[in-house]
Every structure is written in C-alpha cells, then in structure tokens.
C-alpha cells in the first residue's frame, strides 16, 4: 500500500475539481491516478474496511442469516408450534425470570461493591478490586462444576440448607445462584468509573445546603448513577439469559422445571431438529433484543432529563 505525497494529493484534488493542473506540473512529473483514496489523508482505508467487512460477513452475518432463515422450514406454523410448545415456553420463562432476578440482586450487590471500592480505603482493596473480574476470567465450565459441588446437598453451602429442607443445586435456585456469579462484575464495572469520577464539589454543595450524608447519597449521587446502573443491569441480564456453562451443571435439567432455553437448543440439535433449535434461538434473541430496546429507551428518557 502506498501513500501519495501531499503535493500529488493536492494535484489530484485540483483535477477532481475539474480544473487543469498542467501548467504547474514540473517536467517529467507523472500525476498519480486520482483514486478516491486520495480523499483520505491517512492510508489504508480500503484495505482495513475490506478486511473488516469480509471478516464480519463470514464470521457473524452469514451464520446469523443461516440462523434467521432456518426456522421456517415447516412454515410459520412450524415455528409457532415449536416456540409455543409448553416445554419451550417453560424453558424461556425459566431463563428470563432467573436472569431477571439475578440481575436485580446484582444491581444492589454490585452497587454496594462499587461504592465500597471507590469510597473507602481498606487493606486488601486492590486485590478485592481485581478479584471482582474473576467471573469474566474463570471459564464457565469451571464455575459450573464448582458451584454445583458447593450447593449440592452434601456440598459446603448446600449442606447448611439441606437440613432445612431447602434444595439449591438441581433446582431453579441453583440456576439463579450461577447467574448471580456471572453477572456481578457487569454492574460493578459499569458503576465504578462513574462513581469514581463523581464531582466532589457537587457532594459538598449538597452538604452546605444542609443535606445529611444519607440524603446526599440518595438524592444527589444515586440519580447520577442511574444510567450506569441500567447499563450494568441490562448487560448482566443479557449475559444471564444466554448463559450455559456455569448453569448447566447446577441446573438439574429437569424438563418443565429446571431446563434452561440454551439447553433446549442443545437437546433439539442432538435430535437433529435444526429448525426447532433455530426457532428457540430466534425466540431467545427476539426477547433479549426487546429487553435491550426497552432499557435503551429508558436511557434515552433519562438523558433527555439531563441525566446522561
């Protein structure tokens, strides 16, 4: 890839403007071809855009087209029959409700963790801060087997609840626990930077106006965290809906009771029901995107009110 010198770039622009530049050319000077590349000062636009588009088309778009086209093999009826099947409905309901409640818990726990990490100084803070990212870094299968053994009736935590007659592993509660694990860093990492950059003068202003620390936290600081909290919530929620590895070991996978939607896709694939698997996938995606749209809409509303 070559670049054109600034002079020739200027020439090319003259020519594309329809004016002749012959007179000012020194003898023996061959004007470079006036491609539209010369409109860019920096090199590599076509090459980089070409790589990007090709790669995204092959790796993301083509497979998604295959996914979107697949469910209609047995017509719209086939799709509707698949996604309104009671087992599918139960699985979707389970996935979305456990993901929702896990995200709600993470909203509060994540806010407190982010608050503590930005507001207070205490020994070991840097290690705690780093370890919050563990759910991002720990392979989901590892989390899955570990949570499963912890919360099984004979596990460290499970054995505490077993005598009370509460079963955690192999029930929807177990799914919820796994989703709380993987979702926590999303909320913490969304809120933390906003809280860390909160203008100290705004807080002092509230103080001089007579607000108590509690009033300052609730009326002044919390509202400015709202966009970040919503972002963290929706990221944790979206991740939880599709989560597979950390859930599958602890879930129990009982049809109608503790069977999550991603697992249903796996089961349908094992039965070579490609259309059915794709239908469940499309239903999941449609629901997820609806929820993302709603949260985006709330964000826009908030930013209109000057909060963003």
């Amino acid at each position: 890839m070559t670049t054109d010198s600034p002079i020739s770039a200027g020439d090319a622009r003259l020519e594309t403007n329809g004016r002749s530049a012959h007179q000012i050319k020194p003898e023996g000077f061959k004007p470079p071809k006036a491609t539209h590349r010369t409109q860019h000062v920096l090199p590599g636009f076509h090459a980089s855009l070409g790589i990007t588009l090709t790669y995204l088309s092959l790796i993301v778009l083509l497979p998604l087209v295959a996914l979107v086209l697949r469910p209609w093999e047995a017509g719209l009826d086939g799709f509707i029959r698949t996604v309104t099947d009671e087992r599918v409905l139960k699985a979707l309901q389970l996935s979305f409700t456990t993901a929702f409640w896990a995200a709600v818990v993470n909203l509060f726990a994540g806010l407190i963790v982010a608050w503590v990490l930005t507001r207070y100084e205490f020994p070991g803070k840097k290690i705690i801060d780093a370890i919050v990212d563990l759910p991002f870094a720990l392979p989901t299968a590892v989390a899955g087997v570990s949570l499963s053994s912890l919360y099984a009736p004979n596990g460290w935590v499970g054995s505490l609840f077993d005598p009370m007659g509460i079963k955690i592993a192999y029930t929807p509660i177990g799914i919820f626990i796994a989703l709380v694990f993987i979702g926590l860093p999303f909320v913490v990492r969304s809120v933390q930077p906003v809280l860390a950059e909160f203008d100290a003068e705004v807080e002092e202003a509230a103080l001089t106006l007579g607000a108590t620390p509690m009033q300052t936290a609730i009326r002044v600081i919390l509202p400015s965290l709202a966009p970040a909290l919503i972002t963290g919530f929706s990221l944790a929620f979206a991740r939880a809906v599709g989560e597979y590895g950390s859930v599958i070991f602890i879930a129990g996978n009982m049809p109608y009771i503790s069977e999550i939607s991603p697992l249903l896709i796996v089961i349908k694939l094992e039965e070579f029901d490609y259309a059915g698997a794709a239908s469940v996938a499309i239903a999941m995606l449609a629901l997820s995107f609806t929820i993302l749209l709603v949260t985006n809409f709330v964000q826009v509303l908030l930013s209109r009110r000057g909060r963003a």
């Binding site: 203008d199 003068e201 202003a205 007579g210 509202p223 009110r305 000057g306 909060r307």
Partner: peptide, 17 residues
C-alpha cells in the same frame, strides 16, 4: 450542614438530574 453558609462553587456544582 449546620453552618447555614451559602456556597457557590467554582464549577457551580449544580445537580444535573
């Protein structure tokens, strides 16, 4: 909180929400 002093900050520190 108790001094009842009106303070105008350099950045104004208005509550933007």
């Amino acid at each position: 909180r108790e001094r009842r002093i009106g303070m105008v900050f350099q950045s104004y520190a208005l509550f933007r929400h």
